[in-house]
Design a binder for these strands. Structure first.
Lengths: 177, 177
DNA sequence: TCGTTCATGTAAGACGTTACATGATTGT
DNA sequence: ACAATCATGTAACGTCTTACATGAACGA
């Protein structure tokens, strides 16, 4: 069984609101792209496939060749199946942790520098998310509720990484014991 | 600039200890694979490329066509550059969170079931990591120190996800307010 | 008119997964 | 003898990234 998460990401966005490829590109840039990145190339290619499979259909055509897609009944059914009947099975890749495995090949100073950089990085992410969260005015719509949930996860993830990085730094004494 | 994390994962493992493809496959299965999965096919293909690029070399040949690789000076230099001079730039994909974005398309009952399943899933992961951590006897070698660091990250990550899932459940009242 | 934004599409290549294929060695 | 394990390699296909290519419409 193939995974095709991008497929469901697009199906989900189109289900929330009929959109063109260009619209979707923007929505990936500002929100979804932090959770499931996709390039312009990928989006247009997948939209064509989705339309061929009749999971979405062109519901409107506008200026400059704009094609607005809407979800079909079939598409909605598949989306809901994915959402409620399946669970993620891929082990997520983590490049930051991959380096930790090999930190023994660098000096203590370098290892400490790395962990310090991780701490700093997530401090920035945390700040960025806080700013973003304050800029949005959340209401009690589904989009707000679940959007905030994703945002909260991001904040907790950033905090967890910071705390871990600081803890990890303490495991490597600056000078040999 | 290409990313090639698998390349560095293999370089790192070979640097820690000269290994055959088969050896590496085992090490991915028990530890690294939780952070950076790789299949048998990928490992053998990449080892050939690495040897062609002279970042590793065949240092021993054994029974059954076994080829043991060791890292070269060039390979070690590139590995250390990656380790100390570069930082991850990819946005990690998160299929679990992707679904959260679209939970508004399911019923409250289904949304709650999903978050409950996330909680359960990470409870299992947490237990598994605890068991694993107790089974290993950690010493004060680099491999132990940094291995434990990665393990600690996993435990904190699992705990964070559990706490988040429980918090998220509270955001969706069982009955309409 | 001229730069920016809107808008779509394709090609090449890197990276990842699944499946197929083969055979030697070891232990019972 | 036979099963399990050790050991390597390739093919096909799917997914992702980078780059190329084109042009209409809008606003200053």
């Amino acid at each position: 069984m193939m995974l095709m998460s991008l497929r469901y990401a697009l199906l989900g966005l189109v289900a929330q609101e009929p959109s063109s490829g260009y619209d979707l590109l923007g929505r990936f840039k500002i929100s979804l792209g932090q959770v499931w990145p996709a390039t312009q190339s990928q989006i247009y290619t997948e939209l064509t496939k989705l339309a061929d499979a009749e999971l979405i259909k062109v519901s409107d055509e506008g200026a400059r060749g704009r094609k607005e897609y809407s979800i079909t009944d079939d598409g909605l059914a598949q989306l809901q199946h994915w959402l409620t009947e399946t669970m993620p099975k891929r082990v997520p890749r983590n490049e930051m942790l991959l380096r930790v495995f090999f930190l023994g090949l660098a000096s203590r100073v370098q290892a400490r520098a790395y962990l310090g950089a991780v701490d700093e990085e997530y401090t920035k992410v945390a700040q960025h998310l806080r700013t973003l969260g304050e800029a949005v005015d959340w209401d009690d719509s589904d989009l707000s509720v679940y959007g905030r949930m994703a945002m909260e996860w991001g904040e907790r993830f950033a905090a967890m990484n910071q705390e871990w990085a600081r803890w990890a730094l303490e495991q490597i004494p600056e000078r040999r014991a």
